[in-house]
Nucleic acid binder design. Structure first.
Length: 482
RNA sequence: CGGGGCGUGGCUCAGCCCGGUAGAGCACCUGGUUCGGGACCAGGGGGUCGGAGGUUCAAAUCCUCUCGCCCCGACCA
């Protein structure tokens, strides 16, 4: 460490303040989350990035099942005739659909769409399966990939092919249906806030922003560090539109034929992008412990060869003490110095680092360092099994708190469109702006036109905006969005 | 889809304008010394210049087409 002009120093990460997009791309690449595939808009999920998705899946799947849903799998290909049944739906997705036209060398009689979403194929099956009120509700989820021919793409945030889960349910009554829509919206809120430490505003969207073919779309809206909003999940009330065109009916208790009421809801690998932009900093990625493939990394340190054995032996004891309580990586690569590893694992967002050197072995302790603030704490070996998991939970909570504070600092209010224009255009600010809202579609269009900001949602919980709207009124949140 | 930029060892890039048969730094491999915030020395391997076609005695370099990536707009989870 004598010279600071070391030519070996790798390229620094572009700071967020300098160029947020560039920062994002560098983090994705250098943390080895994903790579470009050579196929337009399609990324490769590298093991570390896919590992994050696997933890998300596990934690969300648990919640989906706990609310009574079962997983199933429907085909990737959807016959054109099926896709075209629901007019609004087709119209919404038509520009983004990729088609299979040949089987081998033979041209198909009917083109097959690569699913942009699975309402059509699932509804066609529901019409076969549902006969009686006793068959309801049908509560099915599928984990799948979908393909949408997007104009511009960005890793995770908008890719042509992406991974998601899509829930599709059918109910006997409008009330049951609406209850399901709100239930899953709440599942998403809880999942995203608890596991991803990403605060969100849940609420309905305007007609202009709703899903193609839905009566009503609800979303959870998050705020990224650059002040742009991100739609982090959606829950749609499909009403009876699909039931009517796909002829999904049941006989009620009086023997009367009724159309079912349906919902669909989904979150995607876009959430990975959300995590990157919610928690990442100038040192790189920062993962909430709950979804981190590596929750703590052990970095062995030694000066003299004779220390090597005792350090490694001590690390074995640490591993043994922790068992499977913590997802631990021992970085015993000998070609890198400890300092190099610190940078590396900070870049990759590992929440906690455990330094183990001769001094620690002597004290029978490890030196923990939080990725978030580099706060150090020596943890005795006989306490590691309880202290480290607790420390990880503290980090999880602190990440959420930091994200909440950032959002609070970037949420403001307005009482007129002129306020919005001043905020987004004149002053060039970002973030959420709450505006009293009566549902005026023309005003919404004007705001979009003049501010490039869209109505993100009308928060279900209006309490943070008390007093802004006249008594009995509501506010809507506007933001520029990804 | 419109405007702009860019594809040269794994990465960042030089070479291209003024064609003559490919270079640097980092990374990688081997050996040794190192290791508490990106170590050092010595030796070594690797690219036919995104792809296709054309011009030419000769193409990374000129021309055409095409694919991919990045940025800015319009559309979308």
């Amino acid at each position: 460490m004598s010279q600071d002009q070391s030519p070996a120093t790798p390229q620094r990460l572009t700071p967020q303040s300098e160029d947020f997009s560039k920062w994002y791309g560098e983090v994705v690449q250098r943390a080895q989350l994903a790579d470009h595939s050579g196929v337009r808009g399609c990324i490769v999920f590298r093991p570390y990035g896919y590992g994050i998705w696997e933890h998300m899946q596990r934690l969300l799947d648990r919640r989906i099942k706990a609310t009574g849903h079962e997983n199933a799998y429907f085909p990737l290909l959807i016959p054109e005739s099926l896709l075209q049944k629901e007019a609004e739906h087709v119209e919404g997705f038509a520009p983004q659909v990729a088609w299979v036209t040949h089987g081998g060398n033979k041209e198909l009689e009917e083109r097959l769409a690569i699913r942009p979403t699975s309402e059509a194929i699932i509804c066609s099956m529901y019409s076969k399966w549902i006969e009686s009120y006793r068959d309801l509700p049908v509560l099915i989820n599928q984990w799948a990939n979908v393909l949408r021919w997007e104009m511009t793409t960005r890793p995770f945030l908008r890719t042509a092919e992406f991974l998601w889960q899509e829930g599709h349910t059918a109910h006997a009554t409008a009330a049951d249906c609406q209850a399901e829509v709100l239930r899953m919206l709440e599942v998403y809120r809880d999942f995203v806030e608890t596991e991803l430490a990403m605060p969100v505003y849940p609420g309905p969207k305007s007609d202009a922003e709703k899903f193609a073919g839905a009566d009503m779309t609800y979303s959870i809206e998050a705020l990224m560090k650059d002040g742009y909003a991100l739609q982090a999940g959606t829950s749609h009330n499909l009403g009876q539109h699909f039931a009517k065109v796909f002829d999904i009916t049941y006989q009620d208790e009086q023997g009367v034929r009724q159309h079912v009421w349906q919902t669909s809801w989904g979150v995607s690998t876009r959430l990975i992008g959300g995590v990157i932009m919610t928690h990442g900093d100038d040192h790189g990625l920062q993962l909430p412990p709950r979804i981190a493939p590596v929750q703590a990394v052990v970095v062995p340190i030694w000066r003299k060869p004779e220390d090597r054995g005792s350090v490694l032996a001590f690390i074995e004891k640490v591993k043994e003490a922790l068992g499977d309580r913590v997802r631990l990586l021992v970085d015993d690569r000998e070609q890198y110095s400890p300092g190099w590893k610190y940078y590396e694992h900070e870049l990759r967002g590992v929440p906690v680092r455990l330094e183990v050197g001769p001094k620690d072995v002597e004290k029978s302790a490890v030196m923990s360092v939080r990725r978030l603030d580099r706060k150090k704490e020596s943890i005795p070996l006989d306490q590691i099994a309880t202290r480290l998991p607790a420390l990880l939970e503290e980090v999880q909570a602190d990440l959420f708190k930091a994200a909440q504070e950032l959002r609070a600092a970037n949420t403001s209010s307005a009482t007129s469109i002129e306020d919005l224009v001043r905020h987004f255009v004149t002053e060039g600010k970002r973030g959420f702006v709450a505006l009293p809202w009566t549902g005026d579609a023309r005003l919404e269009a004007e705001i979009k036109e003049r501010c490039a900001a869209t109505l993100r949602c009308i928060p279900l919980d209006q309490s943070p905006f008390d007093g802004l709207a006249p008594a009995g009124g509501r506010v809507a949140l506007f933001a520029r969005a990804y």
